[in-house]
Amino acid sequence: MLFNLALRLGKTITELEHTMPCSEYTEWLAFFGLDENGNDPDDPTVQIANMRNVLE
């Protein structure tokens, strides 16, 4: 989860872990439209993985 957000914000994981409260992290996920796992639901690879999970 943090890796995707860190990449989008141009920060390291360590920077986020030490400076960002959980409430702000949740708000950023909502702002970027990411799911609870930090994935972009519009990403085709995420959509394929989700379809596979449903079919299993």
Rank of each mutant, 00 (worst) to 15 (best):
G33P: 02
N39I: 00
E27I: 02
C22K: 12
L29R: 11
G38I: 03
P44F: 10
K11Y: 07
T12K: 11
A6C: 09
L29T: 13
C22G: 01
L7H: 13
I13E: 14
A30G: 07
I13A: 11
R8K: 09
E27W: 01
I13P: 07
P41T: 00
Q47S: 09
K11H: 05
L7T: 04
E15S: 09
H18E: 11
A6T: 01
E17S: 02
I48A: 12
L29N: 05
T45I: 14
P21G: 03
E24Y: 09
Y25W: 12
D43C: 07
I48K: 14
D43L: 01
F32S: 02
L34V: 05
A49K: 15
P41E: 10
E24L: 03
L34Y: 11
E27V: 03
A6F: 01
D42N: 13
D42C: 04
N37R: 13
A30K: 13
P41R: 06
F32W: 14
R8C: 02
N39C: 10
P44D: 05
G38M: 07
F31G: 00
T19E: 15
F31Y: 12
I13L: 14
L16H: 06
G38R: 11
A49E: 15
L29Q: 10
L5P: 04
G10Q: 06
K11L: 00
L34Q: 01
F31S: 08
I48V: 14
A6E: 06
D43S: 05
E17K: 13
N4G: 07
M20F: 08
N37H: 15
N39G: 04
D35F: 08
E24P: 00
L16I: 13
T45P: 03
L5D: 06
E27Q: 15
L34E: 01
I48E: 14
L9A: 11
L7R: 14
T14N: 11
A30Y: 02
N37P: 08
L5V: 15
N39Q: 10
L7F: 14
T45Y: 15
E15K: 02
P21T: 01
P21M: 01
K11W: 08
N39L: 04
F31D: 07
P44M: 04
G10C: 08
I48P: 01
S23I: 06
P41G: 09
F32V: 02
Y25D: 00
L5Q: 05
T45C: 12
L7G: 03
K11I: 00
A49G: 12
P41M: 00
D35W: 10
G38D: 09
